[in-house]
């Protein structure tokens, strides 16, 4: 028994030694060591963000360019409103240029860099799929020769090009052009950081909350009255008065371009929201607003205010579980 334990201990030591050796060996690859980002900004302000990076290298690969990906709401039009530079004691300073669709990552399976980033990292835990990865590449390259480079990526972004107030999780990823989002015996060649919710205030548009679950979700996030619009009421987000209902209904008012309002607040098949599964407490209806509100060809619906009601139409749930209506503005930008 004693001898058995002794052997087990020896194995444990060996395992530990291997693990430590493994950690030492897996030293190398791009790493984000920190992100300095303000917590809030006003619409239209230029926000400085610093991403601290450290790149220990091994082997003798390269030279490769540094690739940087920035996860932002599509509405910010980041490709046009962002300037990215870098500064490294070893490499000197330089600019990060926007990658076009013409540059394909080596290990991306034919995807563009932004698509490769979205496929690998998704939308960084944001709840509305209206985010995009914007990819940049350093003007200088470095070799994987055992040296360690450290430095900063400096971002200046004008936030809120869509004039919307929002809460959003921004994301940062680095890698190099030779490896992409891969790992091997020399280490992991990428690093990702998603920062806590960043708040944009002072805009005239809707509040878009990418961070917190919403009582209602509209898909597609951006649409016009001639799109099919899917409205989902998520009864699991808050304890609403409709918690026990098996079916709920949409009660909506459209505001048209010619200054009219059209209300459809009936409890029929037209407005019935179907539960996605027997106990999901998520109810869904897909409407074609032009037909739902029966607008004329000359009328365009600019926005829609709505409530979710019970079958009797007496209990109404509105924005944030209050008596105020949910608001959806029909726009593309």
């Amino acid at each position: 028994m004693r001898s058995y334990l002794h052997i087990k201990g020896k194995n444990l030591w060996r395992a530990c030694a291997c693990l430590i050796l493994g950690i030492v060996l897996a030293c190398c690859g791009e790493e984000i060591t920190g992100v300095d980002q303000p917590a809030t900004a006003t619409v239209g302000a230029t926000v400085p963000i610093t991403v601290h990076i450290n790149i220990p290298t091994a082997g003798n690969g390269g030279p490769d360019n540094l690739i940087f990906g920035f996860l932002v709401p599509k509405g910010w039009k980041a490709a046009q409103n962002t300037k990215v530079t870098y500064n490294s004691p070893a490499l000197g300073g330089g600019t990060m240029t926007l990658l076009t669709d013409a540059t394909l990552p080596k290990n991306g399976g034919g995807l563009t860099w932004p698509a490769y980033m979205k496929k690998t990292f998704g939308i960084g835990g944001n709840l509305i799929d209206d985010m995009e990865w914007v990819a940049y590449q350093s003007d200088k390259a470095y070799s994987h020769n055992g040296n360690t480079f450290s430095g900063d990526i400096l971002i200046n972004i004008k936030v809120g090009a869509d004039n919307n107030n929002m809460l959003v999780k921004l994301g940062y990823v680095i890698t190099d052009s030779g490896n992409g989002f891969t790992s091997d015996g020399n280490g992991t060649y990428y690093s990702k950081v998603i920062t806590p919710c960043f708040e944009v205030t002072g805009g005239a548009g809707d509040i878009v909350d990418f961070c917190n679950p919403q009582l209602t979700i509209v898909d597609p996030p951006k649409s016009l009255d001639n799109d099919f619009v899917t409205l989902t009421f998520d009864g699991t987000v808050a304890n609403t008065q409709l918690g026990k209902e098996t079916e709920v209904y949409l009660c909506a008012t459209a505001y048209t371009s010619d200054g009219k309002t059209i209300t459809v607040c009936e409890q029929t098949d037209k407005t019935r929201m179907v539960q996605t599964s027997a106990t999901s407490k998520r109810y869904q209806v897909t409407i074609w607003p032009k037909s739902f509100f029966n607008t004329t060809d000359a009328q365009t619906i600019t926005k829609m205010e709505y409530f979710i009601t019970d079958k009797a139409g007496t209990t109404k749930v509105g924005y944030g579980n209050t008596p105020a209506p949910f608001v959806y503005t029909f726009k593309c930008g």
């Binding site: 597609p220 951006k222 649409s223 016009l224 009255d225 001639n226 799109d227 099919f228 593309c332």
Partner: peptide, 9 residues
């Protein structure tokens, strides 16, 4: 795309 151009049907 009958509505927004980035919604494709």
């Amino acid at each position: 795309s009958p509505g927004c151009t980035n919604n494709s049907y």
